[in-house]
Every structure is written in structure tokens, then in C-alpha cells.
Simulated assay, not measured.
Amino acid sequence: MRSTGRPDSDRYPPRSMSSSSSIRQARESLGKRLREIRKDSGLTARELASRAGWHESKCSRIENGRTPPSDADLRVYTLHCAADDLTADLIATARNIDGSYVEWRRMERSGLRRAQESVIPLWERTRHFRAYSSWLIPGPFQTPAYIRALLMSIRDRRALPDDLEAAIDVRVDKQRVLYEGARRFAVVLEESTLRHLIGGPETMAGQLGHLLSLATLPNVSLGVIPLCTDRTALWPVEDFWVFDDAQVNVELVSAFLTITQPHEVGMYARTFAALADSAVYGAPARTLITSAIDSLG
């Protein structure tokens, strides 16, 4: 059954801001949230600092976003404000602020191989992968020729050190997660993804044929949202991955976004479920893929 109703914040995750302003605003937002928690408890900043054994200015610095709180600070804060149920979410928020937004130029300054290797631990520990794409075929489903075309374009566009062959080898090797362990993959593609010509007709035909083959794997669910679908209630969003229920990765034009805050991860999980509900599977999905192959001539 397809989703209906107006789009809302639970369905559409916010897009990223610039790195420095995003971090500053995120710290201020966390501080504001802590201030509200303290006020709801009936404590003044001085009283909380006294109970926590802090210098009386520390509470103010944290609440104004000037001092990043440690995990221990947040545990003490919620303990004395009788808000223990919020501890895990606040800690995840604080951890996510500095590490969530990494510019590509920082991640790729030594070449593409490092960026490919950086996600290997995450892929190896994940058991349930959910991916949505409106731009490109997702990484584990890419052929070597498709990978080469993508990474070559990125290398040239960003003027990166040339470690193309090593980066391709790492990306191809990571695809072993498709076949190792009890892992499940749920992938939803916009039909436009099948039509974006990457690497020329021959490369694209091979890629789409490979997609048809992978769709037969018992641990893979492949859905395609047809171009003719009414998108009034749920339009395309940025490409994203959900790893178990622990983390979301989003690839932006300028940066790589990592989300671990539980309520935000939940927003993406619900968005994925709604998008998946709009997709077709099995024979109808194969028909769309075959049609894209035929259009290549």
C-alpha cells in the first residue's frame, strides 16, 4: 500500500548545511536541549553544577555550546535532572556532532582508496543493509567496469592523487559482504537510476544485466520505483544507506554525512519503508530493468 498524506519531517530527513556552521549550530542545539531538560527539572545552573561537582560556569558553557560535553558529563547531567531515559540519545547526539560531516576533500586527500577502506568495518559488522538511490547503482551491486567509470570521474573532477586501480580493487573486494554471513540487503532504486548512462552503453548494459542476476539472490530484495509513480506524497530524496538500526550514511555533493542519533536513524528507516512501499518487485522490477537495457540499443 502506498503512502499518502503530506510530506513531513519524519518522512524527509533534513539536508546538510556547511561543515563549520552545521557543527556550531548542532552544539548550540544540544546545549539548548540540555537547558530545557534542566529547567524542566526545576534546577538552576548553579544548583546543577554544585550537585555535579563542577565549576559553576561549566553548566553555562555546555548549555551555550561553548564546551562540548563528554559522555560522563551527559550522564551526570541527566542523573541530577531525573532524565536518565534521555542519556543514550544525548550521548549519540554529542558523538555525532564532530564526526558526522566529513568533506570529501578531507576524506580523499590521499586518494580514493582510503575513502573506500574507511567503511569496511561498518560493512563487516552490519547484518541488515537498506539502501535507497535516485542517482547511481549502489556500491555492492556495481560491476568493475561501472566502478571504474565512477571512480575515474571522481578522480578527475576532484583532481585527486591517482590510486584508481587500488581503489577499484578495494571496492570490488568489499562486495564479498553480499555472499558472506547471514546478511540481508534491501535496495530501492528510482527507475531513473537505471537510465543514467554511466561508462557508455556497453558498461551500462553489463551493469543492468548484473543487477538482474543479483536480484535472484535469496538475501537480496530489489525494488524499483517506476517513473510513472505519483510522487505527490513522497518525492525522491538524497541517496542513503541504513546499517542495521545503528547508523545512516548519506553521500552529499561536498561531503559524507554519518548519522547515529537514534531518532534521526529512525526517520531514515521510516523514509526507506515508505519508499519501498512505492516500489515494484519481482517480474515488474525485472521488466523495468530489461526495458532500460533495451533502450541502450
Rank of each mutant, 00 (worst) to 15 (best):
E124M: 14
R125E: 15
R125M: 15
R127T: 15
F129H: 02
R130W: 02
R130N: 07
R130S: 06
R130Y: 05
A131W: 02
Y132Q: 07
Y132C: 01
Y132T: 00
L136G: 07
L136T: 15
P138V: 02
P138N: 13
F141R: 01
F141H: 01
F141N: 01
Q142F: 14
Q142R: 11
Q142Y: 04
T143F: 14
T143Y: 09
P144K: 10
P144M: 09
Y146E: 06
Y146R: 03
I147M: 14
R148G: 13
R148H: 13
R148C: 11
L150A: 05
L150W: 04
L150D: 10
L151E: 08
L151T: 09
L151H: 11
S153W: 11
I154A: 13
I154C: 06
R155H: 02
R155I: 09
D156L: 13
D156P: 11
D156A: 13
R157I: 04
R157G: 10
R157M: 11
R157A: 11
D162K: 13
D162E: 00
D163T: 00
D163C: 03
D169H: 06
R171T: 02
V172T: 00
D173V: 03
D173W: 02
D173N: 15
Q175F: 05
Q175M: 09
R176Y: 02
R176E: 07
R176H: 06
V177F: 06
L178Y: 01
L178M: 08
E180P: 12
A182N: 13
A182L: 12
F185E: 00
F185W: 07
V187A: 01
V187D: 08
V187C: 03
V188M: 01
V188E: 00
L189Y: 00
L189W: 03
L189R: 01
E190Q: 15
S192T: 09
S192I: 07
T193H: 01
T193R: 07
T193K: 00
R195F: 00
R195V: 08
R195T: 10
L197Q: 11
I198S: 13
G200S: 06
G200F: 00
G200T: 07
E202C: 02
T203P: 04
T203Q: 07
G206V: 10
G206H: 07
